[in-house]
């Protein structure tokens, strides 16, 4: 277990697994910040370990002492009111925050035994293993086929044309889009509907065969039916990939996530098994948010 964690941040309360379903309203102050590891049938191998992560936009501190473990081949949902830092946190995991000039990051984000923020770490290599799907579908202004084949070809994952065709088909099948687009692979990606575009972006991400896929509110721009399709897809994809998704929709978190983390004002308030979190949150703030008292 990961209990070498000693420096517990002020005001930070990380849920400690209690094993029973007693409601705990009081913040668990003073408890060692040991992330949850529920007994579940799924596998619990560690994928990304985050310790004492702080992030500033200029003078403004957007993340405060985040400690969290993300497990392989599970769906982890990050919830919280807007501006709480959940997207910012997500973007720390593949260093997309590097693109913003004024950002300063402190703390450990560890993957595969390496600190992703260390200077020796090539952020391109990191992003190769940690893919991302964005809030708004952003297919490239290329054909559907090229949208998917582009990255694997650059990564030398495919050689011959036949291999490439096969990979495109597999990615589209995995993303559940194949049947809809197999006859129009060479039409522009932007000609698809919003939900299809988002699945195209997911197909694009999995074609690179990453370990982790980050999803930043992937369904917020979509209609309910497309949303349901994508949720089913996430459920299927977690067989192969670790998925971390940000959502402002608590029902969605309840439906798709194995673990849920609740962020508020840059702090991680509670992190727990989704079922526990929604049936029996340990912290008052979480409960207030989940029951819709604010947010």
């Amino acid at each position: 277990m990961l209990n070498e964690q000693t420096t517990q941040a002020k005001g930070q309360a990380i849920d400690v697994p209690t094993g029973d379903s007693t409601r705990t309203h009081a913040p668990q102050a003073g408890q060692p910040g040991e992330p949850v590891n529920r007994n579940k049938e799924a596998n619990h191998e560690l994928s990304i370990r985050v310790r004492d992560l702080n992030l500033w936009y200029g003078e403004h501190q957007a993340l405060k002492n985040i400690n969290i473990d993300i497990y392989q081949k599970n769906v982890t949902a990050l919830i919280g009111p807007s501006g709480c830092g959940k997207s910012t946190f997500l973007r720390c995991l593949n260093r997309m925050n590097d693109l913003i000039k004024s950002v300063r990051i402190q703390g450990l984000v560890e993957m595969d035994g390496r600190d992703v923020n260390e200077t020796k770490m090539d952020e391109v290599a990191l992003r190769r293993r940690v893919g991302m799907v964005f809030q708004k579908p952003n297919p490239f202004p290329k054909s559907i086929y090229e949208n998917i084949a582009y990255a694997p070809r650059m990564h030398d994952l495919v050689g011959r044309k036949a291999e490439q065709d096969e990979l495109v088909e597999r990615a589209l099948r995995d993303a559940g889009l194949w049947n809809e687009v197999k006859d129009k692979l060479h039409q522009p990606g932007t000609s698809l509907s919003g939900g299809q575009q988002q699945r195209l972006c997911i197909a694009r991400a999995i074609a690179v065969q990453p370990d982790v896929i980050l999803m930043d509110e992937p369904t917020s721009a979509l209609d309910p039916i497309s949303t349901a399709t994508i949720e089913d897809l996430m459920d299927k994809l977690k067989q192969q990939f670790t998925i971390v998704t940000v959502t402002h929709n608590m029902q969605q978190a309840a439906r798709v996530a194995d673990y849920t983390a609740f962020f508020h004002l840059g702090e991680l308030i509670e992190y727990n098994d989704t079922r526990v979190m929604f049936s029996n949150p340990h912290i008052r703030k979480t409960e207030d948010y989940i029951t819709g008292r604010y947010g």
Binding site: D122, V124, A125, R128, Q209, P210, D211
Partner: peptide
């Protein structure tokens, strides 16, 4: 299926250049 960071970094060298 997935490659380690070092493997990927080695492949990337030419592309970075």
């Amino acid at each position: 299926m997935s490659q380690s960071f070092d493997e990927i970094t080695a492949q990337l060298r030419r592309r970075h250049r």
